[in-house]
Design a protein around this nucleic acid. Sequence first.
DNA 1: AATACAGTTGAACAATCATTCAACTGAAGG
DNA 2: CCTTCAGTTGAATGATTGTTCAACTGTATT
Lengths: 121, 121
Amino acid sequence: MYPCDAELDRCDCNTIHEEVVAKVREHMPEESILLDLADIFKVFSDSTRVKILYALFRAEMCVCDISVLLGMTKSSISHQLRVLKQANLVKNRREGKVVYYSLADEHVKVIFDQALIHVCE
Amino acid sequence: MYPCDAELDRCDCNTIHEEVVAKVREHMPEESILLDLADIFKVFSDSTRVKILYALFRAEMCVCDISVLLGMTKSSISHQLRVLKQANLVKNRREGKVVYYSLADEHVKVIFDQALIHVCE
DNA sequence: AATACAGTTGAACAATCATTCAACTGAAGG
DNA sequence: CCTTCAGTTGAATGATTGTTCAACTGTATT
């Protein structure tokens, strides 16, 4: 019937299995959810941030502690902590000159454990 | 005792809580595991790849089907399918001119479901 | 053989991003 | 007030990466 939808202008081929496409399209989550999903995985996609989160699984730590643990500058750690905080994954509290960071979301562990199962096979 | 380890040359501060750092360091997973973990999340960090995986949750599809579904060129889909295949997340089979892709790893769904819980709160 | 089409591939381009550097804020101690 | 130190911030840089484009492979059809 239709070789290529008008709104799908960037598609350069005909539908081979229209029924399959229709069925799958019907069950696809909303665009915004898929974007949010990719965004949260993007936060996890940097090894520095993964290391920070694994550290915070164990204990509340200040920026200096994390810097020493990972052998990186305070600046780079602070930049990454900002990313983690914007994603609501960590929270912080100030005590004098020291800022302590801790985990804000407990099911990060569950996600990491599941991903580990995939990696370790 | 030691203000800054010799091997941690890029660290620009003193350890404030040495005991905490020591305890956390003791329980940190191996470097290679943390890198692999970040790598698998990097695969999930692009919305096109997330969409492809969600589509394959429902049905086996050829490149053309996915192109029509997502309104993108065959070329870009093919590039991303290659990334997913290198990560052992999808497999494919050829039937004449058509190449069908399907899910190779079932616990991707579990990872996505857990991440959805974080996103939807 | 020749055409058509599904799919792949590599180079090129633009956008994104992690780290570095330098300057800055803010709190504590002398 | 002045210094010190924990931490933040913004610009700059180098690396990575998603998409496009054009050329290509391979299979089926006529």
